[in-house]
Design a protein around this nucleic acid. Sequence first.
DNA 1: ATTTTTCGGGTACGCCGTACCCAATTACCG
DNA 2: CGGTAATTGGGTACGGCGTACCCGAAAAAT
Lengths: 261, 261
Amino acid sequence: MTSTNGGDTQRTGSDITRSLELLWGEGERPTRGPKPGLTLDRIVTEAVRLADAEGLSAVSMRRLSTELGTGTMSLYRYVPGKGELLDLMLDRVNTVSGESQPPPGGWREAVEAYARETLVLHREHPWLLQVNQARPVLGPGSVGGLERTLSGIESMGLTDPELIGVIVMVEGYVTGVARTQLHEVEATKKSGLSDEAFWEAQYPTLERIMNSGRYPHLAGLSDDAFGRDFDHFEFGLQRLLDGLDVLVAGREAENPDTRKA
Amino acid sequence: MTSTNGGDTQRTGSDITRSLELLWGEGERPTRGPKPGLTLDRIVTEAVRLADAEGLSAVSMRRLSTELGTGTMSLYRYVPGKGELLDLMLDRVNTVSGESQPPPGGWREAVEAYARETLVLHREHPWLLQVNQARPVLGPGSVGGLERTLSGIESMGLTDPELIGVIVMVEGYVTGVARTQLHEVEATKKSGLSDEAFWEAQYPTLERIMNSGRYPHLAGLSDDAFGRDFDHFEFGLQRLLDGLDVLVAGREAENPDTRKA
DNA sequence: ATTTTTCGGGTACGCCGTACCCAATTACCG
DNA sequence: CGGTAATTGGGTACGGCGTACCCGAAAAAT
């Protein structure tokens, strides 16, 4: 059967100001009282490790505390709640490795790189898709990534809203496809059912559908239509880049003098 | 703080065969025993209503049974488990209203319509994004939709894998953007914090970032860069269609005889 | 009337996030 | 040095979740 990916772990009622403090590390260590036995860093690191390895649902306060060898409620000495923990995990993961050096080449290479890196990011941290990214709490990681992407596409010669539009578009496309791909992986992993086994289970139904005559186009598809060897991500990405190219070329034709790069 | 959207409600270990039986309605009513007081249809309808109104997290077996006025465990007489219920909800919602008549016009109009309809679908049923759609259990609704879309784009003159690629691409793009948009709405609804209030809370941080000199491109963006009035969905959709057009035009140039429509 | 089958649903178990406390620890003040 | 204020660790408890396991009631077949 179909699964959802988690409940509604909303970043909802959380304290943004507190998240920001934690993100930019403004915590003044108080002088009195016992030394903390944990660090925020250790908690976030372990939470990310756990999420990567076993999915976001494995990241419960109980489980996390067990993994860290402390009591559950101790975590609340470092993080106000689970929502803020998610904020911290998000920013941790959004910290780009090859930070701050813009990729070489023109905008097409930059967008291509951005798309591929984003896909990889989602592959390495599949739980990203389950986290509400609206209203990102602006941490060092997220901000740095945006700066880098912007620098790569400024040569497109578009307006500022359009530049953001390009980022939204690529981000949307990549996360959408990543979602499909990850659902596939999850389904296989969690059901223990290979793809072949799955379609075999569907086969009788499939045959009835095909033979019903109600779905001629579907029935007319060749066997390789859903084939494994076709790279859907690359196919869509190139179409998308072509589409951006049409726009950029149009702009350059309009005012040839403003061409950059 | 940041939220996830639910746990890992996996369609994982569920019984596909059983889901299929339920979907295509092969249940033989047994002759003995008391008449059922519920119908599967009522359950699914109510579940969808509940999910639409209050989010997928509101759809718990307890809550659902309360809403239906029965005992919680009674639901398990009709549905093997929550996973199968999700399967049924999925197919219910995927049943296209204007079924089976292909949209008029060429492929571009067809893809455009498909994209807009998919976006509307996700707007009406935001919980769709939280449901693992890999390995769709093939119900009447989903199959009908695919057939319709295929009929609209066959005139592109592409290979079968490419046609599927087009669908995957559009679906990916739309769901990706839909995700962003819905996260926005959710964040507002659940935090009770308007967008303005949110960015105000971020303002001190934002100012520090801009003045730090570490993010020149970001700091150089005009005020309207993130403006509300720019329709990101339409912008990206037109680029995407342009990109497909490049491919189609290329194919027509290669072999002009196979041009259709 | 009895048997067989099905339906309704109560109880219980092990998960979850976290509010509320209190004891132990440490540093400062006198 | 003793006392006090601040801070950390973490136990207990509450209300939620999915669902395994059962048993009593209902209805058709015999």
